[in-house]
Design a protein around this nucleic acid. Structure first.
Lengths: 217, 217
DNA sequence: GTATATATTATCGTATACGATATAGCGTAT
DNA sequence: ATACGCTATATCGTATACGATAATATATAC
């Protein structure tokens, strides 16, 4: 992640609201009153409105005139499908590029992340899945970084933000399968096998889609 | 385009600043003072700050603590390459899907847009290119709409916004070539030729890239 | 008992005032 | 002549006060 310079009090407020949204302390679709935040965070209206404006620009909150702000609604099945369709277009290609030009340092970092995920195996169920989702996102982001297209990387990170709200809802036992899929992917990457990496990524995303899909039933 | 409900005065301010950015009345990288906008638009600080916050969330302006807002910097060669790389991953696939399921009404609307572009041929140079760019964007957006993935469509529309600032910079004579490329694309779409549409779209984007690339020299 | 109208409250929307910081211009010293 | 430091101004950042609108609750009439 790129370092961010301090952008004023509104920046802190932004982070506070962002965390509330990610942790589901503010449920999707529920209202967000600025007076409530004024009392809770003990700052004035202005930085709060500015932060909410930013969140609106990013699509995490919506605004209705003379009614106020509310958290963006829950992800729908349609969005879910569209997101995975888009990932399948972008990420396998990124994996192919990554396999072509991966450095030793990047490979080591990637392996370490995968190791961390494996170690999470014994942890408590709910906590485990939350941590797993975060590390999985990190691993995918690392590959996109190696692939080199910052635009694609930022776009997916942004979509991931929306998606994360959704992911936290489920605590499916998905780790073991995903671990072996990551394994195949990393093997292809380290050996510079472009087509293998592309195929492994595509399969991993398709399977991930299937695993999460069950939650919709 | 989806209809938007009125979101208050800040919404008008947002539109005003947005237009200034698109028309290059505010140059990329130049500073935007809120007091200046207060005097010019004759509204108070609050709606202006809220609008700037939203624009920041969309990445069109950047904020520096205790310095203020400024328009996002000019697009770089690197961004340009990344954008086209991403378009090549997403749009040919969209063209393929569109060819599979296009309706008669959509096809008619598409043809009409292409006709409009052809009629622009005689207009004054600068005006022509500006209008051409807008219609070209519209045509691509229509195809993405037909393809059905709203997420991809919104993402590209968003990137296009950034890109538009850049496009207006050039007034290259690119219309004639592009017109025939659109022709091939529409023929493939109307005949339901999936692979042909995909190929035509890829070629169109690649050629568009080459045409604009000259401007970087 | 239900529906409609009115009053009250909560919240958004806007404006203004004050304090803090950075930038720029000017003067002085070397 | 140049460089350093100080002062002044412009702009951001924050807080508070007031007005407008919508949602809710209550009371009255049918």
């Amino acid at each position: 992640m790129a370092i961010q310079r301090y952008k004023g009090l509104a920046d802190d407020v932004y982070g506070a609201i962002f965390n509330k949204l990610m942790s589901l302390e503010i449920a999707p679709g529920s209202r967000i009153t600025v007076d409530g935040l004024v009392r809770e965070l003990e700052v004035s209206h202005t930085p709060i409105r500015e932060a909410l404006g930013r969140l609106e620009g990013e699509g995490l909150v919506v605004k209705t005139h003379l009614v106020g702000y509310s958290a963006a609604p829950q992800i729908t099945r349609r969005h879910f499908d569209e997101l995975y369709e888009m990932r399948l277009l972008l990420e396998p290609d990124a994996a192919r590029r990554a396999a072509r030009q991966i450095s030793e340092g990047s490979m080591r970092k990637l392996t370490e992340t995968a190791e961390q995920m494996r170690r999470l195996d014994g942890a408590r169920e709910r906590l485990r899945y939350s941590g797993f989702a975060r590390l999985d996102a990190d691993l995918h982001d690392q590959i996109l970084e190696i692939a080199g297209n910052a635009l694609v990387r930022e776009t997916l990170a942004h979509l991931h933000t929306h998606f994360h709200i959704f992911r936290l809802m489920f605590h499916a036992r998905v780790t073991e399968e995903a671990l072996s899929e990551h394994e195949s992917l990393l093997v292809a990457l380290s050996s510079g096998d472009e087509l293998g990496a592309e195929r492994a990524m595509r399969e991993h995303i398709e399977r991930s889609r299937q695993r999460l899909l069950m939650a919709f039933v």
